[in-house]
Amino acid sequence: MKPNLASLLDYYYESMYPSLKVLEEKRLHTILTLKKAAAILLAIAALLFLFLTQNTLLKPLHAFLIVGIGGLVIFMFIYHHESAGYGSLFKDQVIEKIIHFLDPSLIYDKTNSINEHEYQQSELFLESYDRFSGNDLIRGTIEGVEVHFCDLHVEKKVRTKNGKEEWTDIFQGLFFVADFNKAFHSKVVVLPDIAERSLGVLGSWIQGMNLQRGELMKLDHMEFEKFFVVYGSDPIDSRYILSHALMEKIVQFRKKIDKSLYLSFVDSKLFLALNYNKPLFEPILSRSLLEFDYIKDYFELLVMILGIVTEFKLNEKLWSKR
C-alpha cells in the first residue's frame, strides 16, 4: 500500500497519538518554563536598570542596552537548553515515526549528516566554507535505488565593513544523494540560472566565462534553459545524462517545489540540493502536536523527498547499471 494522507490520519490516531499526548505535555511544560524564565529575567532586568540609573552609574540608554542584551543572551541560553530536549524527543516521536510509516526499511539518524567528502564531490557549491554542520541523516533503498539525505547547513565567516566577523550561509536545506540510473564518468552540474534571467545575452556570455565550472552546455529544452544553467565536462555525456525526458521532469519538479534547485551528476551519482533557509525537521515550539495539520507538513515534506526517486525515474535502470 502506498502511504497517503488518509492512511497517515489512521496511523496518526492509532500509533502516534498516545505518545504525542505525553510529548505535548512536555511541550507545554517547556513553554511554561520559558515564560517563567522570561518573567523572572524581565523583573531582574527592570530592577537592575532602575538601580543603575538611580545611582547614576550609567546613562539610561547605556544601562538599557547592557541590561537588555544581557537579559536576551541569558534567555537565549535557557531557550536553547530547554528546546533542545524537546526537539530531540520530537524527532524520535514524530519524524522517525513518519519515516517508518512511509518506508520501514529506511534508517534515521537524527544526529548524523552526509560527510564532507560527498558535499565536495558534488561540486554544487565551490565557495570555501568554514563551518559544516548537518543532522537528520536518512538512508536506505527506495525502489531498488540507494539514497541518503540530510538537513545540511554550510557557512562561511566573513568580515563586515566595521571589522566584525559574521557567519553567512552558503547553503541551508535538503541535501540528497542517490544512485543514478545511467553509468557515466564525466560530470554535469545544473545550477539555478540567475545571470541569464536578469541580464539576458550578456548574462549567458558571463556564464560562458565561468572557467572554474567548466564548459557551458546549451541544451535543447527551452524551459529547462530558462530555469537552469548547465556546466559539464563532456558535451555528449552531458546530453546522455540530461535526456529530454529527464529535463522535462526536472522542470516539472522545479515548478512544483518553487525553490532554488541545484543538481549535479558525478560518478554515476545524483546530488540534489534544495535551498530552504531554515532547518527541515526541527519542531516549532509554539505549535500544538495534537493538530494533525502540523504533523501533515512534515509528512508532505518527507513524501516529496522520497518521491524524488520515482519522480526522476531513477528506478528505471539502463542496461549497464542492472
Binding site: K218, D220, P235, D237, S238, Y240, L318, S320
Partner: peptide, 27 residues
C-alpha cells in the same frame, strides 16, 4: 535480451551525441 539491452543503451548514447552535434553545428 542482453544484445537488445546494449543496443537500447547505444541508441540513447547516439541520441545524446546527435543532440550535442546539432548544438555544435548551430553554434
Amino acid at each position: 535480451l542482453h544484445l537488445q539491452g546494449t543496443l537500447n543503451e547505444l541508441e540513447e548514447q547516439i541520441s545524446a551525441a546527435r543532440r550535442a552535434y546539432n548544438q555544435s553545428v548551430t553554434d
